[in-house]
Amino acid sequence: MTKRFDLKKFLLNYLVLVAIVLLVIITIIVEPKFLSGDNLTNIMRQFGPLSFVSLGMTFVIIGGFIDLSVGGLISLVAVVTVSLIDPLGQLNALIVGVLFGAFLGFLNSMVLISCGALTQAEALFITYGMSAVYSAVALIYTGGSTQHMSWLTTPQTIFTAIGSGTVGIFSVSFIIFLVCLLLLWIFHNKTYSGRSISYTGGNKVAAELSGIPIKRSVILIYTICGLMSAVGSIVLFSRITTAAPIIGKNYETNAILSVVVGGTTLKGGKGSVLRTVLGVLLITLMSNCMNLLGVSAYMQVVLKGAILVLAIWLDNRKEQ
């Protein structure tokens, strides 16, 4: 009796892992090409942009907020960075792009703090409005046209390396991801600021009364989210070598879904960047496996949606 109960609990707790393993086993049986080196490198590349954005989004959700502005932010950072490569040189453009993303995130937090928005719903709509502004500014900045990196005269070796370079079987973007993951994990678990983000998400009133600097937490989570989205944006346009002003569309929902599927609760307070990695992995693997199995693009959206709804539902059952 007890043994069966434990198994159930284990399954519910590590549902994402179980799903990933099942998915991989089924795909290997049907299509052995899954394990080829090319495909693994391919998965690591597809893993790219969404994983960075999701890492940033994890902190926002742990802090009990939500950020819908990342879609617009990614578009804006992408077009600005590409346009700066010629006048500033590639390294400076890269640095300015990342800092610009962090600044936009900071701007979000400033809008939220200035009106004292403390609930997820308020943050939801304010960042939605900010997203409309960012993506419109991206459209105005480029006049609505796509920027191609092949039009630039300056060399773009750094961006080419980020987009398509490999070290062994690891893609460069994956290595950058591992570094970011490590840094953010240390920040979240080993520093005072990182821990106070969790406390802020757990119960804002209690955190404030206990002397946790809530405002600093809000600034931190949105700035980190902006920063990581900017990195994701750079990885994204380096990979496809064009920056369209609508490049970031749908990234906000995908990022939120992968964070939640990974097991970070939307109520805030609980969660970790490592869980998010599992969530992103599940979503990326799902795309890859369905492509290998020849599932039609439309059916993929249906299946993805169905699995996500199922995952969220089961995750919720675990808590009760």
Binding site: T253, L266, G305, W313
Partner: peptide
């Protein structure tokens, strides 16, 4: 379940 996230997923599914 959290209304916000489950209906978001449902919307995505229906689009498909």
């Amino acid at each position: 379940t959290e209304a916000f996230i489950i209906t978001l997923g449902m919307g995505m599914l229906l689009k498909g």
